[in-house]
């Protein structure tokens, strides 16, 4: 299917550009087939949930510290900056609204997905890439164990499950950070902080849409990470390149998807 590198060199640079584009389209098609296969082979995960639990530990639990600490700091920064800006308009009582809405709608899902991509996504790619490089995947196939069902699908579902949970924890932690800075340290009125927040944040419009966003990001990040690992050239260089590509591609995908989802969810009103 793929044009050979020798032929590449013979081609003039313009047609090499075209060959590159075709390569990318082929890769995209392979990636689409890959996620289809992953979902089709998810039956094993249902039959043996322990496989998913084990991956949940590595993707979810081990990402907890970085998510919680970043959430706290992002919330604290929002509290400080928001107070500085709002106080010029004499409306520092709206600090709770500012902190909660920006976290629940945007920062929670997006920043936690970026952290997740670099913390768990890169690890997934490296692990699967190395499994491929050391021919563990071929060994599995030889033992009639489907590597997609045994290795890929549990990681996929673990990522998809843990991403919304991590984003929710990030947002909750961020609101707490904003509370600590705004109410405890600066002294914004506690009653108006919470009540204005509660009257402005809608469960369906804001919280649920944030959860949907983080779910979509979870699918995108784990898909990219697993595919890059599975498709990595079986060399040390190939695995390192695939790991880099995972972080870069999934970060771009998160930001682009976020724009699309936001324009669907929040523009109409």
């Amino acid at each position: 299917m793929q044009p050979s590198p020798a032929k590449h060199r013979a081609l003039p640079s313009v047609s090499r550009l075209g060959a590159n584009a075709i390569d990318n389209v082929l890769r995209l098609g392979y990636a689409a087939r890959f996620i289809g296969l992953t979902i089709a082979h998810s039956g094993t995960c249902l039959a043996r949930p322990r496989l998913v639990v084990r991956e949940l530990y590595y993707t979810g639990v081990l990402s907890l510290i970085i998510i919680l600490v970043s959430g706290l700091f992002v919330g604290m920064v929002l509290g400080l900056q928001g107070y500085q800006t709002l106080t010029t308009y004499g409306s520092e009582s709206a600090l709770g609204v500012l902190v909660a809405l920006s976290l629940v709608r945007e920062l929670g899902p997006v920043v936690s997905a970026l952290l997740f991509a670099s913390r768990a996504g890169s690890a997934m790619t490296a692990e699967i890439g190395l499994m491929k490089a050391t021919e563990q995947l071929s060994a599995m196939e030889m033992m009639a164990v489907d590597p997609i069902a045994r290795v890929v699908a549990p990681r996929f579902w673990a990522g998809v499950i843990s991403m919304p949970l991590l984003a929710a924890m990030f947002s909750a932690m961020g609101v707490f950070g904003g509370y600590v800075i705004g109410v405890v340290l600066i002294g914004v009125d506690e009653g108006s902080f919470w009540s204005q927040m509660q009257s402005a944040v809608d469960v369906r419009e804001d919280v649920l849409n944030g959860v949907i966003k983080s779910f979509v990001f979870g699918v995108a990040v784990t898909w990219i990470a697993l595919f890059e690992g599975y498709d990595a050239p079986p060399t040390a260089e190939g695995v390192s390149g695939a790991t880099t590509r995972t972080v870069v591609t999934s970060s771009l995908a998160i930001l682009a998807l976020d724009f699309i989802l936001t324009s669907f969810m929040f523009s109409a009103a």
């Binding site: 979810g60 909660a100 629940v104 843990s162 919304p164 949970l165 991590l166 929710a168 924890m169 947002s171 909750a172 932690m173 609101v175 919470w194 927040m197 509660q198 009257s199 944040v201 809608d202 469960v203 804001d206 919280v207 944030g210 959860v211």
Partner: peptide, 14 residues
């Protein structure tokens, strides 16, 4: 994670 979602729904949301 579920506790965080509940907090977001009840304490932050309305």
């Amino acid at each position: 994670g579920i506790v965080a979602l509940v907090i977001l729904a009840f304490k932050v949301g309305n």
